[in-house]
Amino acid sequence: MKEIRWHGRGGQGAKTASQLLADINLQEGKFVQSFPEYGPERSGAPIKAYNRVSEEKIRVHSGVYEPEVVAVVDPTLLSAANPTEGLSNDGVLLVNTKKAAEEIKSETGFGGKVLAFDATGVAEKAGSGYANIPVLGALVKVLGTDYEVARAEVKSALSKKLPEEVVEMNLDAFKAGYEAINN
């Protein structure tokens, strides 16, 4: 079983991305959980969301303490939250930032694999404006998920809520996120 933690700010779509990832993993035939950590809900406040992915039925219902992968949707949370907490050096830290991975390594003191790219810039260029989807694209690559399966699920899920042109922008951002990192 793999455990993943998301760090974002209220309104940035970390929870949405977490649920999309669960939908994608289901399409691969996996068992999943996706849940946010609830506190006082305010736009802009730091939030966490979690995924569990497994080949077998997931029975555990506790919090996630030692994730294998951490995805940081908002660059300011590198200092405002503690994204490397519980993350071992075998794990992966995926960060939306303009900085280089080496810089993030020295800032966080994290000894494991750091993957960094400017997801905000990617989203702005695509016109979608939300960094959660390019981060999801990158995460899908980190997890070794089939790109077409993932893209189809993102398209299907977003099409239920968003107009076609916005869906297309998000799919561009998803693709750019997927291609932005070398796993």
Binding site: Q19, F31, Q33, S34, F35, P36, Y38, I58, H61
Partner: peptide, 12 residues
Amino acid sequence: LDGFTLTHTAQV
């Protein structure tokens, strides 16, 4: 069903 743990968790 347990609040949040089950109500707010997306699961299979």
